[in-house]
Nucleic acid binder design. Sequence first.
DNA 1: TATCTAGTTTATAATAATTCTAAACTAGAA
DNA 2: TTCTAGTTTAGAATTATTATAAACTAGATA
Lengths: 139, 139
Amino acid sequence: MIISGNLKTYVQKLRSSNLRPTKQRLKICQFLFNREKTFHFTVETLNKKINKNIGTKVSLATIYNTVEAFTSAGYLKEILTSKNKSYYDTNTKSHHHFYDEGSKELTDIHYSQIKLSKVPIPPKGKKIKNLEVVIRIQK
Amino acid sequence: MIISGNLKTYVQKLRSSNLRPTKQRLKICQFLFNREKTFHFTVETLNKKINKNIGTKVSLATIYNTVEAFTSAGYLKEILTSKNKSYYDTNTKSHHHFYDEGSKELTDIHYSQIKLSKVPIPPKGKKIKNLEVVIRIQK
DNA sequence: TATCTAGTTTATAATAATTCTAAACTAGAA
DNA sequence: TTCTAGTTTAGAATTATTATAAACTAGATA
């Protein structure tokens, strides 16, 4: 398997997520992180992309496990939707989304495009972990 | 079955959702709309509440269908989460939520508690249907 | 370098939420 | 009262996800 010049960063991401760098996981990294633009996906779409190419086969279970580990390590972000399916985003910075109810597509909104002038105080003993805005759009 | 004094409003809600007022649907209405406070639920929790009481039995399928019809008619609002389960809210007004990652509970945030000073323009040909903020909190 | 073990991968089974189906039932118009 | 389109229901089917357990492997150690 040819691994791009990002090998080191993939290994570092995996290690810091408590995952050994295996060939399956490195392949997943290529599909996730070797990109110019932000990547939105579900496990289903990621699985299709990875496995339609020839080469190492990666099982669904491994994709689920790896995506889950990257999410809790903070390298991926779970997106809030009303669908019964998990959507992920490789852009883990604070940002927001348009959700098109017709096409069911998500588009990033850069954090600077939304400004909040008032945010509530969290309940006692709780801290704000993050804040996300989803703007549902339609024709 | 005893139906509260809200019978007329239930019938009207059902009719305007293109649903005939049947005894099952009226019973669902009682559990959804005969409340002082906003009610957050999943089909599972609603089903339990309805069917632990004696009286007419309402099947899961009917609950799914009715909740779905009320949602598209605008009498219920689907809540955005990262769980693979649909959450609904009887408060259909524009408002926001705290989502506690520990207890998995949702709490309303009154719309006046959040103010946006900048909102992006939607893509061409699309209109904003609604805007929701979810603040994830943790200990 | 060879060995060993804890971690990993995988196909498949299990589970959970939701949707579908088709037969029996019913609201309400005529 | 009759009739029909709409409704209810149990259970089957589907879909996303998680669990399982046997075969495999990274990489520490001898």
